[in-house]
Every structure is written in structure tokens, then in C-alpha cells.
Nucleic acid binder design. Structure first.
Lengths: 221, 221
DNA sequence: CTGTTATGAACCGATAGTGAACCAATCTAT
DNA sequence: ATAGATTGGTTCACTATCGGTTCATAACAG
């Protein structure tokens, strides 16, 4: 039988890693070799095994690090969210925005509704596309602000941030036209009308219809 | 060893910044280098890290300043989300989870449904409360995993993280009893049943009913 | 014998930190 | 208005510590 020292060292290392002995960086190979009373090449093989199965990450000139990265940490979740596809995002908008419109119809103050109306009007009167986009987004955001659900509002913020990133930008550009802008204005007006009438079910339906239009335009079909 | 001092200095600076030690302007790099007993180049690297993530802004000839917090940045959104009230959160769960169950009924693979069933059974057979809680959460999470909407899945992760924070913990404890645990098991079984029958509308309704029970228990009424 | 594994050593290239010099923008005091 | 001090920006040579690679050698199992 061969000595399999490398394998033994690998399991020993794995144990000490999972015990949390090393926060993120493990000692240099040369030190480990000394500690285990073994040649560096042997340690290298052991570390190589742990690197293959994703336990460790090696960086020349820096050191060897435990792969770590808690997949349930906030940053990790946000990082994965950045890869959200337009279709997935749209599916969620179709869930949340009509609900937000419904909440807004019942909960909004008169002042908040005025703010929504202002955003609607400014968007309609916008002359160039970036300005329309801004007030379009603001219109939707102000509806969320009326919902009286802070978490829902922040979820919309989150979606806004995600939509202001790379693949979306071009997509929005391609899917835009003067005709569609006017369609959006009409649909916004319908939503605003239901909000002002304090009609939750109507607001929900109007928002749903609007988003279905947006989805058609954005995702093509 | 490359000591990787820059990273440590960066975190030290981040801490002192958030503690409000410096209102607006932080000390010159040369001073910091002296204070940390380190070369200026090293401080520059640390400050560079904080500049990249938007914590600091540097201006030649003037100094280095803590950046005004952008309310539309990911960290800011996250920070505000941490203050989410149980009622607001519940309102969103009532929107998202039934939808996820509906998606799952149509999109899940057989293997994924097995995983859901396993989580259900393990939760039912759990003897102590922490174990039940874990598999309860896992049951819900695996349903989201079946939804085939990555963004929806991450939204659930987000809510899970938020719910694992301070005010929630005690709340869950107070709202818990053996009787309720059994109720949850029965309701979970109903959801699982609809999923296995590939009945989206039924799954949606069953999940909604379950969450309404949870809401009653959690928020009292 | 052959093939595998471990050894020990040497050398490579990448990365981090040091210390110092000099540049360019800005502010302050005269 | 000008001169000098202050501050971040850039570059450089140098050192030390890493992982990456190779090779000759020894030990051992089949």
C-alpha cells in the first residue's frame, strides 16, 4: 500500500477548516509542511485536493483561502439578484405592482395622490426619452410609496436598482418608441383614475394591464 | 508572509467611519500611515478599497471625505429593509408565497417535489422546536426552489434573512405551541398534496390558507 | 522489475508592503 | 495676486512572502 499521506493531510485540513481554526486564510504551504513534518510537495497535493472540491482557493503571491462565502449572507443574495433575467423580474413585477396599486387605492393620502398625478403629467409632457423614463419610473415609485408598506416600497427600490444595470439598459432602448410612450400615458391615466376613485380592484386591474403591455414590449412576442 | 494589512486597515477605517469618528473629512493619508504604523502606499490601498465601494470620495489637494449615503444604493436599501415590520413582511409573503406555490405546481421536477416532501416529513417528525423550525423553513424554501424563478427564490432568501433578525426571534418563540405545530403540519400536507397533483390553483389556495394561519398566530388577533 | 508516492531542493512569477521622490490640485497666509 | 504649505496621484527600486513548477532521488507495493 502506498502511504497516502496526502489524503490523510487533506482530511486533517478539512477537519481543521470546518472547525473554524482559520477564518479565511490558511497558513502557507511551507509552514504546513513543517507542521505536518512532511515535504511541501505533499502538502501541495493535499491542498490541491481541497481546491478541486471547492473547499479552498489558491492565489499566487497571496496565499490559500477557504472558499467560505456564506450563500445566505445579504451580499451573496444581492450578488445573485444582479443576474436576474428580465423574464423573472417581470413575473415578480406582475405580482407586486398590481398589489401595490390596490394598497395605494385604499391607503394613499390626498397629498400622495397629488404626487402621483404630478409624476403622471410630467411624464406625459416629457419631450425626450430620458426625461419620460425618469418620470415613468417616478410614477410607479410614488404608487409604491402610497401602499403604506415600507417593505414593499423597498422591494420596488431593489427592482429599480437591478433594472438600472447592464443588460436592461439596451433592452429598454430597443423596446421604445413614440407610439408606445403614448400607450403608456393612456394606461397610466387609467391607473391614476382608479386610484383617485379609491377603487382598489380597478387600480389592481389597470396596473396589471399596463404591466402586461410593458412585458409584451420588453420581452417581445 | 504578505500580511494583507491593507484589508485590515480598510475594515478598521470602515468601522471608525460608521462610528462617526469623522464627520466629513478623514485625516490625510500621511497621518493615517503614521497612526497605523504603515507605509503611505498601504494606506492608499486601504482607502482605495473604501473608495471603490463608495464609502469614501477622494479629491486632490483637498482631502478624503466620507461619501454622502446614496439612498438608492443596495446597502441603503438593505439597511432600510432591516427595519421591516412583521405586518408589512407578512403582507408580502401573502403575495409571493402563494404565487410561488402555484409556479411550483406547474414547473417542479419530480426530484424537486421529492425534496419538498422530505422536508415536510422531517418537519412533522421533528421532536424539538428548533429542528421543526429549520425544516419548516426548508419546506417553504424548497417550494420557492421549484418555482423556476431565480429572482423569486432570492426574494425568499432575503425575507428569510430578515426574519432571522432580532425582533422576529422572540416573536416566533412567543407565538409557538405544540398545537400550532400540528396545525402547520396538516396545512403543509395540504400544500404538498396539491403540488403532487400538479394543481397550481389548489397549491396557491392551500399556501394562502396556511400563511393566513401563520399571520394570525404571529401577529395575534 | 515497474509504477506510484513522498522527499528535498531549486527556481519562477505574482503579490504585498516599504520608503522615497516628484507631480498636480487646492487652500491659506501674506 | 503670489508664495508656500497641504493633500491626493503616480512612479520607482527594493524586499519578503507566497503559490507554481520541475527534477533528481528514495521508499515501497504489486
Amino acid at each position: 500500500m502506498p502511504k497516502l499521506v496526502a489524503g490523510d493531510i487533506a482530511t486533517a485540513l478539512r477537519k481543521r477548516i470546518s472547525s473554524g481554526e482559520w477564518e479565511d486564510r490558511i497558513p502557507p504551504e511551507r509552514d504546513l509542511a513543517g507542521e505536518f513534518g512532511v515535504a511541501r510537495n505533499t502538502v501541495r497535493r493535499a491542498v490541491g485536493l481541497l481546491e478541486e472540491d471547492g473547499t479552498l482557493v489558491r492565489q499566487v503571491g497571496r496565499g490559500t483561502f477557504v472558499a467560505a462565502a456564506d450563500p445566505n449572507s445579504m451580499p451573496a443574495v444581492f450578488a445573485r439578484m444582479e443576474g436576474t433575467s428580465p423574464a423573472d423580474m417581470m413575473e415578480i413585477r406582475l405580482l407586486l405592482e398590481p398589489a401595490a396599486a390596490g394598497f395605494a387605492a385604499t391607503n394613499a393620502s390626498a397629498g400622495e395622490l397629488n404626487a402621483v398625478r404630478d409624476a403622471y403629467q410630467t411624464a406625459c409632457e416629457a419631450t425626450d426619452m430620458p426625461e419620460f423614463e425618469h418620470w415613468d419610473a417616478e410614477f410607479h415609485h410614488r404608487i409604491f410609496a402610497c401602499s403604506r408598506n415600507e417593505f414593499l416600497k423597498e422591494l420596488h427600490n431593489l427592482m429599480r436598482i437591478l433594472r438600472n444595470q447592464s443588460p436592461w439598459f439596451e433592452m429598454k432602448k430597443r423596446s421604445f418608441s413614440e407610439e408606445r410612450r403614448q400607450t403608456y400615458c393612456v394606461e397610466h391615466e387609467a391607473i391614476l383614475d382608479r386610484l383617485l376613485r379609491r377603487d382598489p380592484e380597478g387600480a389592481r386591474a389597470a396596473m396589471l394591464a399596463h404591466l402586461q403591455t410593458v412585458a409584451r414590449n420588453l420581452l417581445g412576442r
